[in-house]
Design a binder for these strands. Structure first.
Length: 336
DNA sequence: CCCCCCCC
């Protein structure tokens, strides 16, 4: 075995046969088919002592050989692997690195002792909640976020059937950094393990969550974080970022800009009769009701016309109307 | 050398 120094993960620019890296396996995940069957192949995130990270793929043909040597938390030396740049349009990249590794049947993995510079157990690249709106729906890179879980008692696991007839598990919750809130939707296996761990999570309230490698999307015009295959979460994790957030939380001004979220009540389903009986303490509360529309009163001016295309208000509608903003033709309303 | 949808 050669005794030459280990290569820096950022120096690995193209395939070369003699790369030698010393890394900690910090995360591991498997892709799945649309119906949730896990692949034999898997992925890992590797980190060196400089906290450089790189994603590595372990193809099915070398899983039997390598999986037990690549346990999360272990430090190892790895030689003989392929290097591949991400394709220019490739989305859902897990590490801020132009390249990723592909292990193969010649790859050698050896447990090594950690001497000198210690490789941390984890490393995150957090985005502020306020920045998320600006990067939503891009997802060339996956995103790390930290926040305080709100209204923990309202969080539940739901069974859904989507419009294609597939079954899904879903859990929704909101996290805050004190000044803004972000919605999170976890799906399927991650939704299940999240709700389970949240129930087991002992004492320390509120629960601080780190979500790593998540997608930043939108739902109902709001930023919504959701899980990709690589997404992992940590509750009240032993990490300085969690300690810092808990310190901020102890400050009485922490929620100053966040009162609405803190006091937000669960939306209730009420009958019209119950809504009529609500008292002053329900002012501006949100409720849901089921009702049948019997007729629409078109006298008075409680309503206005909008173009069904551009949603701009239309001043008058008599006969067919061409929207002056987008030229859409809006037919005359039919009278009964 | 496998996936990254899915809730209105």
């Amino acid at each position: 075995m050669s005794s030459r120094k280990y290569d820096d993960l950022l120096s690995i620019k193209q395939a070369r046969s003699d790369w030698k890296i010393k890394v900690r396996v910090i995360r591991k995940w498997r892709g799945a088919t649309k119906i949730g069957e896990l692949f034999k192949s898997f992925n890992i995130m590797l980190m060196d002592y400089k906290e450089n990270k790189i994603q590595a793929f372990v193809p099915a043909k070398c899983v039997d050989d390598l999986e037990n040597k690549l346990k999360v938390g272990s430090v190892c030396s790895i030689t003989n692997f392929d290097v591949q740049p991400y394709k220019s349009q490739e989305k859902f990249r897990c590490a801020q690195n132009e390249n990723h590794l592909i292990l193969n049947i010649n790859t050698k993995v050896r447990d090594v002792e950690e001497k000198g510079n210690t490789i941390p157990q984890e490393s995150f690249d957090f985005y502020d909640h306020a920045e998320l709106d600006g990067i939503k729906n891009v997802n060339v890179n996956l995103t790390d976020v930290i926040g305080i879980i709100q209204n923990r008692e309202d969080i539940s696991l739901k069974d859904l059937v989507n419009r294609l007839g597939n079954k899904n598990l879903q859990t929704k919750f909101t996290i805050t950094d004190g000044s803004s809130c972000v919605n999170v939707t976890f799906w399927d296996a991650l939704a299940k393990s999240f709700t389970q761990q949240l129930q087991l999570q002992p004492a320390q309230e509120p629960v601080i969550i780190i979500i790593t490698c998540c997608k930043v999307g939108s739902w109902n015009d709001e930023v919504d974080l959701s899980n990709a295959a690589a997404t992992t979460f940590y509750l009240n994790h032993q990490h300085h970022s969690v300690a810092e957030m808990r310190k901020l939380l102890a400050n009485p001004n922490f929620y100053k800009h966040n009162q609405s979220a803190k006091t937000k009540k669960k939306v209730q389903l009420l009958t019209i009769g119950e809504i009529k009986k609500l008292q002053n303490d329900s002012t501006e509360s949100e409720v849901i009701t089921h009702a049948n529309i019997r007729y629409v009163d078109d006298k008075g001016n409680w309503y206005y016309h909008i173009c069904t295309g551009c949603k701009e208000e239309i001043q008058s509608i008599r006969g067919d109307f061409i929207c002056s903003k987008c030229n859409r033709r809006i037919p005359q309303l039919e009278k009964k």
